[in-house]
């Protein structure tokens, strides 16, 4: 299949950047990234600068890959990361626009590579259970209801790719933050520091400069792990509770 790609090229974080057009010959069995590899090979042979993009596991779990394809983070197939998107989802002769995540909190490093350090800082602000190695009681000491564990897992399935921010017209990171809050707050082990965690992670999220959720639902629609905005509702609830119900500090 012959494709026209319009790819965002930006030399570094300070450069302006623009879309550039390329022709590429692909097979429908290729993954989207393999198609990008083919294009890069082509560019290297022509001694041009290849397109920089983050990628690693290519199994849809590391969360590295981050391309906005025809306006959709990770492209047209729902529940799928860029690396698992295959070219059979496109037609011969298609024009495909490939851009980086768009958010002022994720500055472009080069071409399609962005800096998602804000996510790490949100986790550092409270996305953990404070337990030192060796302090743990027996794994079966606290039974956890099967459905509850499963619900916590749904939230914990987040791969931290940032598609939610890229999809959100407000550039909000609520789905990412809520997924972590919801994962940990639901479990009995995480309940202990729920108040502090929720308040602190929301504060960090705001400090990073992410936008505010207006319940559009684009994050949920584009999330490659299909994480539900129910988790955002839980975080909202627990945030209000953490502020009004928490201790006076």
């Amino acid at each position: 299949m012959k494709l026209t790609l319009k790819v965002w090229r930006q030399k570094n974080s300070k450069a302006k950047g623009e879309l550039e057009s390329y022709q590429v010959e692909a097979s429908e069995h290729m993954s989207f990234l393999e198609m990008m590899d083919v294009l890069n090979e082509q560019l290297i042979v022509e001694k041009k600068s290849p397109i920089a993009f983050d990628h690693d596991c290519r199994e849809g779990i590391c969360g590295s890959c981050s391309m906005t394809i025809n306006g959709s983070p990770h492209g047209p197939q729902s529940g799928t990361t860029t690396c698992q998107l295959h070219m059979r989802k496109f037609k011969d002769g298609d024009t495909i626009v490939v851009e980086p995540w768009r958010s002022s909190v994720f500055p472009v490093i080069k071409d399609l590579t962005v800096d998602r350090g804000a996510f790490d800082r949100i986790i550092q602000s409270g996305g953990y259970i404070s337990v030192n190695t060796g302090q743990a009681p027996d794994g079966n000491a606290i039974p956890i209801e099967k459905d509850l564990a499963s619900n916590a897992f749904d939230a914990a399935a987040c791969i931290g790719c940032g598609a939610c921010v890229a999809a959100c017209p407000n550039g909000s990171a609520m789905l990412f933050t809520a997924a972590k809050v919801s994962h940990l707050n639901q479990l009995p082990q995480g309940k202990v520091e729920q108040t502090r965690r929720t308040a602190s992670m929301v504060a960090q999220m705001d400090k990073e400069g992410f936008g505010m959720c207006s319940n559009v639902g684009a994050c949920e629609a584009e999330c490659p792990k299909e994480i539900s905005i129910e988790h955002i509702a839980r975080m909202n609830r627990e945030y209000v509770a953490s502020i009004f119900g928490g201790r006076k500090s």
């Binding site: 259970i129 743990a136 564990a149 897992f153 914990a156 994962h183 479990l187």
Partner: peptide, 9 residues
């Protein structure tokens, strides 16, 4: 035990 305490579901 350690992983359960960390919240691994």
């Amino acid at each position: 035990d350690q992983c359960v305490a960390q919240g691994v579901p």
